[in-house]
Write a protein that binds this DNA or RNA. Structure first.
Length: 829
RNA sequence: GCCGGAGUGGCGGAACUGGCAUACGCGAUCGACUCAAAAUCGAUUGCCCUUGCGGGCUUGUGGGUUCGAAUCCCACCUCCGGCACCA
């Protein structure tokens, strides 16, 4: 008998799947389309092709592929495509270092990913493959940009933006982590620049509301997005500064504390600051303060234990609720980018305002009764952030603050001094990048006509070849003079092309739609094809995309639906986030030298072992630590299944197992049905692949234990063959090559063409049960009893047990609990 | 600070609706096969006491509910992730 040779087996089946194009599916109306079959769109996040795939990729695609196989065998027409998110900084930075064009390095990496996906045996419909850096793809990225532009969802404006000095480009808010560039870790600085934005804030409420429409997303991902959008309801209230004849609106979530406002604070970037202090005694000090704050990084400014700082302006505003004049300050704890960049300060009921008041000796006024022992710092129990009866609030005194809330806002409204308002933390999505390796933004600038979109029939605006990829504070494209100089599509006069490129997150915000009609040369996708396949039924990827990619893709889907290009509001009905694999308890990184190359393990143990191992390590949504011993354990299991197959093929006959079999034959067949049942349920219950695989291991273990006693008879042999083929069928989603091989050898059939097996309920039920006997809740004996034994008989058996009698030792039984089929508990006193 | 998630053998983890805690895998020990080793097959393996039979203890800690708690409730501790001067 030959040993388990995964290489040979895997090559053989990979050839079959490639030659027969097994995993390709047709759109409605195309040849090969099967009417009436339900569809399922199974999608893993597309990889960013840089170097070679790592274990994170292996896990993601192993998990997704097992789901695709499971669904196919449940009668679904499964679309399972693959592509590459192939624009982006790393390829460009590599180009700057080595001089190798980004396209060359990227395409080499794509080739490597493609080869490994085939070697892993992932069931991909290759006819739908795409790469976002190809003109065939980004032509449509540009088309979407124009769709947004023409519908006022893309706009160009000057705004304070986050600039990474190292990568020499602006970044979206979402790409700044702790005040640092997400990619390179450099501290970002604020700059005022004219940039392209997508109006995602327009969709803030719908992005929040439609969480309801999702079938199954991890709760923490929804929470993260909800926090990121950061919706808060409140009111806008106008404070007036008569001295300079200016109104200062503020946003507050606590209009009920308006009577407690004792001072007023502007952000250092506030545009009216200059006017307020020009020519006054405060001017020099304010200017110095603003400059100092401007030099500080976002990280310094946001530091937790930072003392409150600020400077009085020597001006005051009038509180609209009581006419009180309150002094104005500039302080960096007020942020220009949130609300109106100005706040009313209520030190009695806000801890930050309280801190500031303490430092500057400002009055603290209580306007809500109540005490919060946790938050209170002052002697009088202030600041108090909670609810209670209003006090010191004129006509509102004595009212419950929550009840008075709307009343105050309505009253202010009638006076023209306020209105209900909603604020978001979410900012519009900044999409322009001063970099080379991305999709050009398809607009031109004409002295006569201004910003002019490139007409659709002139797309794509192709990325020109350049010599120097290094950014010089503007896009490297600016150096491609011949490309930049163009004619205005509107007036025909001289014009210049936009030289910024799009954020790569734009590319990946719609790729799941292109798969549906990847060869379409006339449109980004056919509406009918999109209506048929969308939404993605199961999306799989890393949790690191919880905010960025997943929120942008949701926004795109809604915008495209509004423009009539799609019939769904949400792209991903179900989301599964896989946990990260570590090594020696630490995140893998080249600098730590603890990376695992999937290729090496596939070479040594085969793809089936590598794939099954990452699914067996633990629940896939959680992380796990990679160990070579664990890999070997899984390899041992697959080898055992292989040897069992070899032996069964030789020593048993093909055919169905005997339903009337008894004894060990029945035991093994029953175990196979138990494994079917458990594997199916655990698969459906949140993709608990680790226990699915352990059930198959148990089945194989039992087959080994029983096989030598079964080979002699027809019914025994049939039981072994059935158990082995069943194990192959159940392990197929994880180890598709070995599963196919074993199943074909024992049944003559191709396992992926066979429906997923169903457990026979008759074989799941056992004739006898092990009755657990407890005394006062403690296990004292186990008794075998027929399954249908009545309660009284079970009690009699329990009392008759010698072991039980010892623990009863003459005490009186005060209570008897019988759970039929499970246990008897005797309570004594 | 706020919001999530998690604490179970030497290790990764299992336990469905409150009912046999520790499935499966790793590691370890012993045995068979072998001249030998590897591979393979088989047995043992939570901790403590006991020669044995057997007994006691055990799911982060403390309390509660219950005939019965890893599971439900209360308080606390630790770790991981996200957000954080957001008015």
């Amino acid at each position: 008998m030959a040993g388990y040779e995964p290489k040979e087996i895997e090559r053989r089946w990979q050839r079959v799947w490639a030659d027969e194009r097994t995993w390709e599916v047709a759109n409605p109306g195309q040849p090969g389309y099967e009417e009436g079959k339900p569809k399922s769109y199974v999608l893993e996040m597309l990889p960013y092709p840089s170097g070679e795939p790592h274990v994170g990729h292996l896990k993601c695609y192993a998990v997704g592929d097992s789901i695709a196989h499971f669904r196919r065998r449940h009668g679904f027409e499964v679309i399972h495509p693959m592509g590459y998110d192939s624009f982006g900084l790393p390829a460009e930075n590599n180009a700057i270092k080595t001089g190798e064009p980004p396209r060359v390095a990227t395409e080499r990496s794509i080739e490597s990913f493609r080869r490994q996906f085939r070697e892993w045996g992932i069931s991909i419909d290759w006819s739908r493959e795409l790469a976002t850096h190809t003109p065939e793809y980004y032509r449509w990225t540009q088309w979407i940009f124009l769709q947004l532009f023409e519908n006022d969802l893309a706009y160009r404006t000057e705004a304070p933006v986050q600039w990474c000095p190292k990568d020499a480009t602006v970044l979206a808010n979402e790409q700044v982590v702790d005040g640092r560039c997400e990619r390179c870790g450099t501290e970002v600085v604020q700059r005022n620049l004219e940039q392209w934005f997508f109006r995602i804030t327009e969709y803030a409420d719908r992005l929040l509301e439609d969480f309801e429409a999702l079938e199954s997303w991890p709760e923490h991902v929804i929470t993260m997005q909800r926090n990121w959008i950061g919706r808060s309801e409140g009111a806008e209230v106008v404070f007036r500064c008569d001295e300079v004849d200016l109104d200062f609106p503020v946003f507050t979530t606590r209009p009920d504390t308006l009577f407690g406002a004792t001072f007023f604070v502007l952000a250092p970037e506030h545009p009216e600051l200059e006017r307020l202090v020009a020519g006054t005694a405060a001017e020099a000090e304010v200017r110095e303060y603003v400059n100092r704050v401007g030099r500080e990084s976002a990280e310094e400014r946001g530091a937790e234990d930072r003392e409150k700082t600020g400077v009085p302006l020597g001006r005051s505003v009038v509180n609209p609720v009581n006419g009180e004049e309150i002094p104005m300050f500039v302080a960096d704890y007020v942020l220009m980018e949130y609300g109106t960049g100005a706040i009313m300060a209520v030190p009695g009921h806000d801890s930050r305002d309280y801190e500031f008041a303490q430092r500057f000796g400002l009055p603290v006024k209580r306007v809500i009764a109540g005490e919060d022992p946790e938050a209170a710092r002052g002697d009088d129990g202030l600041p108090y952030p909670g609810d209670g009866e209003m006090t010191g609030s004129g006509r509102f005194d004595g009212k419950d603050n929550r009840e008075a809330y709307d009343e105050i806002v309505a009253w202010l409204g009638s006076e023209g001094r306020g209105r209900p308002a909603v604020n978001y933390r979410l900012r519009d999505w900044l999409v322009s990048r001063q970099r080379y390796w991305g999709a050009p933004i398809p607009v031109v600038y004409c002295d006569e006509c201004g910003i002019v979109p490139v007409p659709e029939d002139q797309l794509p605006v192709e990325l020109p070849e350049v010599e120097d990829y290094a950014p010089q504070g503007k896009s490297p494209l600016a150096a491609a003079e011949e490309w930049v100089a163009t004619d205005c599509p509107r007036c025909g006069g001289a014009a210049r092309r936009e030289t910024d490129t799009m954020d790569t997150f734009v590319d990946s915000s719609w790729y799941f739609l292109r798969y549906l009609d990847a060869q379409n040369r006339a449109a980004a996708w056919d509406r009918e094809a999109a209506d048929f396949w969308m939404p993605v039924d199961q999306y799989i990827g890393g949790v690191e995309h919880a905010i960025l990619h997943l929120m942008y893709a949701r926004f795109f889907t809604k915008a495209l639906a509004d423009l009539g290009h799609l019939g769904v509001q949400e792209p991903f009905a179900n989301l599964f986030t896989q946990g990260m694999i570590t090594r020696d308890g630490a995140k893998m990184s080249k600098s730590k030298g603890n990376t695992v190359s999937p290729g090496d393990y596939v070479e040594r143990y085969g793809a089936d072992t590598a794939r099954t191992y990452v699914c067996f390590m633990g629940p896939p949504e959680r992380g796990g630590d990679w160990t070579d011993e664990g890999v070997e354990g899984v390899n041992r299991f697959l080898s055992r299944l292989w040897r069992l197959c070899e032996e069964a093929e030789e020593r048993t006959q093909a055919g169905e197992p005997d339903a009337a079999a008894e004894g060990q034959a029945r035991e093994l067949v029953a175990k196979a049905h138990w494994a079917i049942d458990k594997a199916t349920r655990d698969f459906q219950r949140g993709f608990q692949f680790n226990t699915v695989i352990s059930a198959v291991m148990e089945l194989v273990n039992d087959a080994y234990r029983l096989k030598d006693g079964l080979y002699g008879t027809d019914e025994g042999g049939a039981a072994v063959r059935f158990a082995t083929a069943t194990a192959a069928s159940l392990i197929f989603p994880f180890a598709p090559h070995l599963g196919s091989e074993v199943y074909e050898r024992l049944t003559g059939d191709r396992v992926w063409e066979r429906p997923w097996p169903e457990a026979d309920p008759d074989l799941l039920a056992s004739d006898t049960v092990t009755l657990v006997v407890q005394v006062n809740g403690k296990l004292r004996d186990r008794i075998e009893a027929p399954a249908e034994t009545p309660k009284e008989e079970l009690l009699r058996l329990a009392r008759a047990s010698e072991k039980v009698a010892k623990h009863l030792n003459g005490q009186q039984i005060v209570k008897e609990i019988v759970v039929p089929g499970k246990l008897v508990n005797l309570v004594v006193r």
